[in-house]
């Protein structure tokens, strides 16, 4: 316990130390303000931008795009995962494709998506899905693979029908893997959508950051970067905590 506490304290110390170091270097002028804005200034600028409400439309736009991409990816990923899991011959054929899927940088398709669908949210959603669907699909298949045989036999002994087997046996034992898939899908949907907005878009947070960069508006740019990083980090940490709670409940049960 004391070791755990020491680790947490050291971790906070490392992060806080890094922030303070950057702050001091910025204040002393070692780091040029044209290169990096002091962290305290970023927070101040961000508070100003959020209070003025200038950025609300872009936040809403990006959030809607990410949410749409995420929901579609999770549903499609699970459906595809279950379907491919049920067809071993197809799965064997797809295996090499899935194994090398993430070695291809999917962003390169984004200009094509824009050319095909036009410059709106649609290519962004497709790009987010191109990133997130295979992760969700592979996690689903991994979860289905690892259902203990005994449980399925038990289901047959109890004469559970398909629906009961799915809800009482399959779903609970595949949950940890589905959760891993969900975590990846969230991270990937964020990366895909924001990167797409960054490269080519007419609205959204990624676009605002790129726009501020091109206009040499460092204060807005760093404030928005901070916003994105804080949102993503808070979300990852809460997902991590939620997963830990689920795991503990499983162990107790």
């Amino acid at each position: 316990m004391t070791r755990n506490r020491a680790i947490v304290l050291a971790r906070i110390g490392v992060v806080a130390g890094a922030v303070v170091l950057v702050e001091v270097l910025c204040r002393l002028g070692v780091i040029n303000p044209l290169t990096l804005v002091a962290p305290s200034r970023m927070v101040f600028d961000l508070a100003g931008i959020l209070a003025s409400g200038d950025i609300n439309r872009d936040i809403a736009y990006t959030a809607t795009t990410i949410a749409t991409a995420l929901v579609l990816s999770v549903v499609l990923g699970i459906v595809l995962g279950v379907a491919v899991h049920a067809l071993p011959r197809v799965r064997r054929a797809l295996d090499p494709l899935l194994a090398s899927y993430y070695s291809v940088p999917s962003f390169i398709f984004y200009p094509l998506f824009v050319a095909i669908f036009g410059l709106n949210t649609f290519p962004l959603i497709v790009l987010g899905m191109a990133f997130a669907v295979p992760a969700m699909m592979m996690s689903t298949m991994a979860g289905l693979d690892r259902i203990p045989r005994v449980l399925l036999k038990t289901a047959r002994v109890h004469r559970l029908n398909r629906w009961e087997t799915a809800t009482r046996i399959v779903l609970p034992s595949a949950t940890p893997y589905l959760f891993t898939g969900l975590k990846l899908a969230i991270a990937y949907a964020f990366i895909g959508v924001i990167a797409g907005e960054f490269i080519m878009a007419s609205a959204g947070l990624g676009h605002s950051i790129a726009f501020a960069y091109e206009g040499f508006d460092n204060h807005t740019m760093y404030a928005l970067m901070l916003f994105v990083l804080v949102v993503v980090t808070v979300m990852n940490m809460s997902l991590h905590a939620w997963e830990g709670r689920l795991m503990r409940r499983r162990i107790r049960a």
């Binding site: 020491a6 680790i7 050291a10 971790r11 490392v14 992060v15 044209l34 290169t35 990096l36 991270a187 964020f190 990366i191 924001i194 990167a195 960054f198 990624g206 950051i209 790129a210 501020a212 960069y213 460092n218 740019m221 760093y222 928005l224 970067m225 994105v228 990083l229 993503v232 980090t233 990852n236 940490m237």
Partner: peptide
């Protein structure tokens, strides 16, 4: 000890959309 301290920080860095950091890299 250093590893346990660093792991969640690294995992956090791994899952942030690093694209947003590109302007900073360009400025540096």
């Amino acid at each position: 000890f250093a590893g346990d301290v660093a792991e969640p920080i690294l995992a956090g860095l791994y899952s942030i959309p690093k694209v947003t950091l590109y302007p900073m890299i360009l400025l540096i």
